[in-house]
Computed example of a mutant assay.
Amino acid sequence: MVRTVVPVVLAAVLAIIGLLHFIWVFTPWPMADAMTFTRTIAGSDDGEMPSGPLTALVGLALFAGALLTLMVNGSVPGIGPEWLRLAGMYGLTAVLLVRGLGGYFMNSGAAEEFQRWNSAVYSPLCVALAALAGTVAVAASRR
């Protein structure tokens, strides 16, 4: 299961979230408008969409994390030395864990809708993804 289901689920979720970030460069979908988007997803009340280039960069990083997961798992051919891919996988685990646990501190001063969504979905999702990424990293370390 660790070599099949866990990495595929992790890569799929990271890719889907990455795709959402690319969509958000152009539109606030699935929200009706920019104000709803910023209150729910970005955490601000100003209605100003986040920077397009930075949002695309986050999307690219999420796609890279998905690809890295598949490379570390051996599902796709690896690029670069194995030790570097493994270090990247542990790095991905750390980033997701920091966002997940640190996300609760983001609630201070954020829009009320964002606080609810962040506490119920965004932060727990990041912690769960960190657990999956850590599982992939540890499994690869033992091979």
Rank of each mutant, 00 (worst) to 15 (best):
P28D: 03
P30Y: 06
P30A: 13
M31I: 07
A32C: 14
A34M: 10
T36F: 08
F37H: 05
F37S: 06
T38D: 03
R39Q: 12
R39E: 15
T40P: 05
T40F: 12
T40N: 09
T40S: 14
T40Y: 07
I41N: 10
I41Y: 10
A42N: 13
A42F: 10
A42I: 08
G43I: 12
S44P: 05
D45C: 10
D45A: 13
D45H: 13
D46L: 13
M49T: 08
M49Y: 07
M49S: 11
M49Q: 10
M49W: 05
M49D: 11
P50K: 12
S51M: 09
S51R: 10
P53K: 07
L54V: 10
A56F: 06
L57E: 13
V58N: 10
V58T: 13
V58S: 13
V58C: 06
G59Q: 05
G59T: 03
L60G: 13
L60T: 15
A61D: 04
A61T: 11
L62D: 01
L62C: 06
F63N: 07
F63G: 10
A64K: 03
A64V: 12
G65D: 00
A66I: 07
L67E: 11
L67N: 11
L67D: 11
L68V: 01
L68Q: 02
T69N: 08
T69G: 14
L70H: 04
M71L: 07
G74N: 09
S75R: 14
S75K: 12
V76F: 08
P77D: 08
G78H: 02
I79E: 15
E82A: 13
W83L: 07
W83N: 06
L84H: 00
R85Y: 04
L86V: 03
L86Q: 03
A87R: 08
G88F: 00
G88K: 04
M89W: 04
M89R: 02
L92Y: 01
T93H: 05
A94N: 01
L96W: 00
L96C: 03
V98H: 00
V98R: 01
V98L: 08
V98F: 00
G102V: 03
G102C: 04
G103P: 09
G103N: 00
F105W: 09
M106I: 03
N107G: 15
N107T: 12
S108D: 14
